[in-house]
Simulated scan of single mutants.
Amino acid sequence: MIELLSVPFTSRGWTDSYEAMVIVHGLLRSEPEGLAFEFRRSEHSFGVKPTVEDPIRTIAIPWAEIQSLTYRRRFLGWGHLVLRTRSLRALDGIPSAQGNELVVPISRAERLSARELAANVELVLAEQRIAALDAGSRPSALPPG
């Protein structure tokens, strides 16, 4: 049984033409079926008010699609979670996802929560791999005589 945890994050970048700053506020959380990536994307021209603000979206990533979730420490206590999936389709529609990898920036205040979430996800994935190995090593029915 997985412990249900969540980690908030804020990601900043630019549009392709560098006309506006893109800010993504979101939450990465564990659920019994997998991970949920909930976020709202907004564009800010000249740093004032959001000129474009998308509705809140939630993308569910089932356990079978998750390859790994690791926490990487960065400069001055900041860090990021790196989510790798087994297919490109699992991260379809998530801003800043590159191929089958998503890097989620984590603030210093949330680093312990992020490390705990990564550890719990890796534990679930390890348990699933062990269960799959056990299921594959069980002797099947008696061979035909």
Rank of each mutant, 00 (worst) to 15 (best):
E38T: 13
G77M: 07
S68F: 09
E19Q: 03
L35K: 12
I106M: 11
A60V: 04
A36V: 13
L133K: 07
S113R: 14
G26F: 06
F39S: 10
L4D: 04
A97T: 07
S140Q: 06
S140E: 06
E53W: 01
L35G: 05
V103G: 06
V104E: 11
F37Q: 09
E19T: 05
M21C: 00
E65Q: 11
L102A: 14
T15S: 03
L35H: 03
V103M: 13
E101M: 15
E3Q: 11
V124W: 03
R12E: 08
P8H: 08
L27K: 12
E101P: 04
R111G: 04
I59Y: 01
A118R: 15
R72N: 11
L91E: 04
A118H: 12
F9N: 07
L27D: 07
E33N: 05
G79S: 14
E19A: 02
R89M: 07
I2A: 13
M1K: 05
R29E: 15
S11M: 05
V24F: 02
T15K: 02
P32A: 08
R73H: 14
V7H: 12
R86K: 15
S96N: 07
R40V: 15
Q98D: 11
P55Q: 02
K49S: 15
F39V: 08
T51H: 06
E110V: 03
A36Q: 14
W78K: 11
R84W: 11
P139C: 01
A60M: 02
R57M: 07
Q128A: 09
T70Q: 14
H80R: 14
L76A: 13
R84I: 15
P32F: 02
I59Q: 09
P95A: 07
H44C: 00
S45N: 02
P105W: 02
F46I: 01
A135R: 09
